[in-house]
Amino acid sequence: MTNQSPAELLVLHAVRLLGFADSEAVAEHAGTSHADALRELNAAKDAGWAQHIAFADLDGWSLTDSGKTENERQLAAERVSADPDDVVAAAYRDFLPLNARLLRVITDWQIKPTEAEQFAPNDHLDLAWDGRLLEELTTLGRQLAPLTDRLSAVLARFDGYVARYESALHKGMSGEPDWIDKSDVDSCHRVWFQLHEDLVATLGVDRRNET
């Protein structure tokens, strides 16, 4: 049976995955009401796990070091009962080669070498170049879907990544290149990065030791 994570975990985890975000964004990502998210955020603040910054036009939440540690403790405890067969670890191993391909695509989306400049920014005027990359992103989305199905069958919070990825890809294919790689919108790259972070946090993996 799919495990439904408690609100305390979902809110703290959402802050980790978002990095820095206002309470509305945290609530949306956690799948909770705004009132519930605020209650959990303030409780996390009181416990020293989260901090709220409000200055000029900057207003949002982030985790403290102890909050990151607590989040990982909660995730590890959840896995003991929710994932006795190590489904998440197996899915993570299958994710890594897909991740390497995604990073190559994003690099090529951002940089298109010319004779004069090896690291020239991609101006997105070469339709054949971009078309090849969009085709690979489409393939990656198809291959990601069964992997996230395995994950969400164990932990419900993994559901939704593919839908977000496909939505961003559709916008990118419709002439909005920012939806492929930018971090200030829910782009393909941002969704993929958050899934990667979700996996390493859940498993307690240090990205520096990934192979």
Results as ranks from 00 to 15, higher is better:
63 L>Y: 05
81 S>K: 11
82 A>G: 07
95 F>E: 09
96 L>P: 03
85 D>C: 02
62 S>C: 13
47 A>K: 14
100 A>F: 09
103 L>D: 14
90 A>K: 12
71 N>S: 13
64 T>A: 06
78 E>I: 10
33 S>W: 00
86 D>S: 14
77 A>K: 14
88 V>Y: 02
44 A>W: 05
48 G>A: 05
85 D>M: 03
94 D>I: 04
60 G>F: 04
51 Q>K: 09
31 G>R: 00
83 D>H: 08
33 S>F: 00
29 H>M: 05
52 H>Y: 06
77 A>T: 13
82 A>V: 07
36 D>A: 15
90 A>P: 00
82 A>F: 04
112 K>F: 00
107 T>F: 11
93 R>A: 13
95 F>Q: 04
110 Q>H: 00
66 S>P: 00
34 H>L: 13
65 D>S: 12
49 W>F: 10
62 S>K: 14
71 N>L: 10
69 T>V: 05
59 D>N: 15
106 I>A: 10
69 T>L: 09
55 F>G: 15
82 A>E: 05
53 I>C: 06
81 S>M: 07
36 D>S: 13
43 A>K: 12
109 W>G: 08
59 D>I: 11
33 S>T: 11
56 A>P: 09
41 L>Q: 08
83 D>S: 07
58 L>H: 12
106 I>H: 11
94 D>P: 14
98 L>Y: 03
79 R>A: 10
96 L>V: 14
62 S>P: 00
57 D>C: 11
81 S>W: 04
58 L>Q: 11
101 R>M: 10
71 N>H: 07
108 D>K: 14
59 D>T: 13
50 A>H: 00
96 L>C: 03
102 L>S: 11
112 K>T: 00
49 W>T: 01
